[in-house]
Design a protein around this nucleic acid. Structure first.
Length: 311
DNA sequence: AACCAACCCAACCGCAATAAA
DNA sequence: CTTTATTGCGGTTGGGTTGGT
């Protein structure tokens, strides 16, 4: 048996909202609230709209203090960090960015930020950078030999975090969703705290990797384990794989299979024949594409393959 | 000026989770 | 416990806009 439709599709209006509809919905909710029943709301106020549509319109557009566009570098960084950590859980990410909606962030990620990070600039960015270069060049157009920014390869459009005064986003850890927390390296404190909050637990509170005696981590309840990169092999001679207890992490954050569109390479998933020179120097800013791809490749090669328990 | 492709974003759709009966 | 209704979420789509040729 199929599921009953939430509304009569034939009698409800679809498509863009008119200013009158917006005003009706907005004024009603501001005065009376939603009444706890979105489905009944449109009939109550005489709107020929589906309740879901009303809800979406309110949440994404009419709600007070909504901000559209103009994402700051800080917001970019938060989005990226969270995406790397928790995947496409837009509602959770949106909850960390006041005034932003999940839809907005999702759109922004899919249409712009992803391209920015992976080097395919949007035309808008291309224009901005081109203008900037022109300005720096005394207002003259660039020589054709330099090519048009973007669209001719990842390298040309690579996003330069330093240029934007941003710290490089935390490097994800193959074998763990929370690279930056591998461990306290690269990720800033706010994100770490957020992840703690989201998970209700913290990687920081996870048992110490077995290769290191607990004493090495200190006794503080919220200690942050030292980076595996810098941690020596333990004195007992047991080889440290450099892998945090991924499954425990997974459980801690209640990860199922998180879709990490475009970031699979960070986690040893997907196409093993990843072309490293196509990865934006984002991962190794201020380096040439060649050197950053080498570094990236090297980085991943030194890591042992990790079974995340994901299918 | 016209055409085309890329971009952007609001809105829709379907599914899963949760609440209520 | 089961069924039904509602909500919330993420993926996708369609249409308007913009810029290049």
């Amino acid at each position: 048996m199929g599921r009953a439709p939430c509304c009569d599709k034939a009698s409800v209006k679809k498509g863009p909202w008119s200013p009158e509809e917006d005003a009706t919905l907005k004024s009603y909710i501001e005065q009376n609230g939603t009444g706890g029943n979105w489905i009944a709301l449109p009939q109550k106020i005489g709107l020929r709209r589906c309740g879901k549509s009303c809800r979406l319109r309110w949440l994404n557009y009419l709600r007070p203090n909504i901000r559209h566009g103009g994402f700051s570098d800080e917001e970019d960084r938060i989005i990226l960090s969270l995406y790397i950590s928790i995947g496409s859980r837009w509602s959770i990410i949106a909850a960390q960015l006041p005034g932003r909606t999940d839809n907005d962030i999702k759109n922004y990620w899919n249409t712009r930020l992803k391209k920015k990070l992976f080097g395919k600039q949007s035309r808008k960015d291309q224009r901005q950078h081109q203008f900037a270069r022109q300005a720096a060049n005394g207002g003259h157009k660039e020589e054709a030999s330099e090519g048009v920014a973007g669209n001719n390869g990842f390298a040309a459009g690579a996003y330069n975090w330093h240029q934007h005064g941003m710290a490089m986003p935390p490097r994800p850890m193959p074998g763990s969703m929370v690279e930056g927390n591998r461990i306290g390296e690269g990720v800033d404190e706010s994100i770490r705290k957020l992840l703690f909050k989201l998970g209700g637990s913290s990687f920081a509170a996870l048992p110490a990797p077995p290769c290191l005696p607990p004493s090495m981590y200190g006794e503080a309840p919220n200690f942050v384990a030292p980076s595996v990169h810098t941690a020596p092999l333990n004195e007992g001679g047991i080889h440290c794989s450099g892998v945090l207890p991924a499954l425990e992490l997974d459980e801690s954050f209640q990860f199922n299979q998180v879709k990490l569109d475009g970031l699979e390479c960070f986690f040893g998933m997907g196409d093993q024949s990843m072309r490293w020179n196509e990865v934006s120097p984002l991962v190794c800013p201020n380096t040439t594409v060649a050197s950053s791809s080498q570094a990236m490749q090297q980085y991943c090669l030194v890591e042992e393959p990790v079974d995340l328990g994901m299918q």
